[in-house]
Nucleic acid binder design. Sequence first.
DNA 1: AATCTTAGGATTGTTGAACAATCCGGGATT
DNA 2: AATCCCGGATTGTTCAACAATCCTAAGATT
Lengths: 252, 252
Amino acid sequence: MTSAHPEFRGTAGPAAPGGATPVGTKAGGPAGTALASAARMRVATPSVADRVAAELRLQLAEGLLLPGARLTESTISEELGVSRNTVREAFAELASERLVVRHPNRGVFVASLGPGDIHDVYTVRRFIEVSAIRGGGSPARIAAVRAAVDEGRAAAAADDEEALGTANQHFHRAIVALAESRRLDTIMAQVLAEMRLFFHKATVDAHFYRGYLADNDEICRALEAGQLERAGELLLAYLNRSEERQRAVHGE
Amino acid sequence: MTSAHPEFRGTAGPAAPGGATPVGTKAGGPAGTALASAARMRVATPSVADRVAAELRLQLAEGLLLPGARLTESTISEELGVSRNTVREAFAELASERLVVRHPNRGVFVASLGPGDIHDVYTVRRFIEVSAIRGGGSPARIAAVRAAVDEGRAAAAADDEEALGTANQHFHRAIVALAESRRLDTIMAQVLAEMRLFFHKATVDAHFYRGYLADNDEICRALEAGQLERAGELLLAYLNRSEERQRAVHGE
DNA sequence: AATCTTAGGATTGTTGAACAATCCGGGATT
DNA sequence: AATCCCGGATTGTTCAACAATCCTAAGATT
């Protein structure tokens, strides 16, 4: 909406018929034979559709695209300088992450969570996070949780609300990461991304996350001490309180 | 692969240039104003891409497409009589469900679970299912669990291995459904769909599911009696045993 | 013989344009 | 006022083309 991205394509130009730019530098030698697809994605140039999706995800996370807003194919297509078909693929990606909702024949809209969705999201979080912390984890993973706590403290000291929010997300992602499960990691990432759509209303309250700092620390200490049951209970209480607060900030 | 589906499109023909079939029957009046998108999908004709995805999902579930097999865009495009672009959208859908893996510039392949994936999937199931059953549920939801148990018994009596397998899936879906969470339901559905890709090797063993019947019944009885903690432990043990067995059937 | 290089074909990634189907709003009609 | 109808806008889908990439198989080099 705000800034046009004239150069969004990959190496090649607009594939304009006639325009011959024979600069085939062939960058990147035959490095590695069998990379896992995940690792490959980080090396190989991601597809244009992926980059469009990433851009939209970013705008979503920054609150440039408010919930309920409509995303018109042609508009985004022009704005980002890509084909309408590619935008379409990006939409499919975002829709599968629930960041966007498709209304057949009517278009895609930025997802907006209703009261029921809030409870739903917190149910998922309770199930996964509490189970994860009750299972404990390797020292390295526990150290990562501690690191997230410190990150939050540093952000609070610097009065950086933005960093505080992301630190909080790191904390919860680190907890799920205890389980060492790729699938749970992505599920958690999606759920947090969904919630981020919401928080731009709540985050105006400067003290919103600050109150959680002490909780995070206490949970982390219990985890480090091997008191997994207690850590689980603390985390559960935390999530319940958070949901309550979320519902209070939001109507209904 | 086996059967060509010549008529896969919706109401209109191939949109052949020149062919003017002005039969605008305008079926379906202005029924309902604000249907939830989920409910809408069941009413409105799903998109062609969705139907292609559904068809592939079916072939996947039936074991027609073995893990590791390659899905060529042009082939499926011709076989189903749809555009390559549409096939592409269907692929995106399946990829988001992990039923299929995209290798950039190389094509999409039927997902194949390695030993690590098996553990991963079972981790997800342990987290979600056990949490769900420990939370209990409404009488109606509990009755649904009981119904799934009975369904399995009936299938066993009829010596219908196929039905036995689906009944078992119903059982576990019913357990997750106790939580009344749309998101958890879809997560569980995806995980089960992933596992189904696998079971076509294991299911040859006629006694595979049969041994689980008694377990399911015992778990259900505990649930009905309100012994949630015990039900959770039983279910956990069940899942652990199942994973073990799965690993035994499979190499490594 | 083993390896490096090169060409060729096949498939994916992306584009642009076209058209059908559908939805939305605003007049015209009753 | 309620209903019908029509025209504009947007989505859904197709088609054809081309660039980029990968795979294989010869062919050349050591």
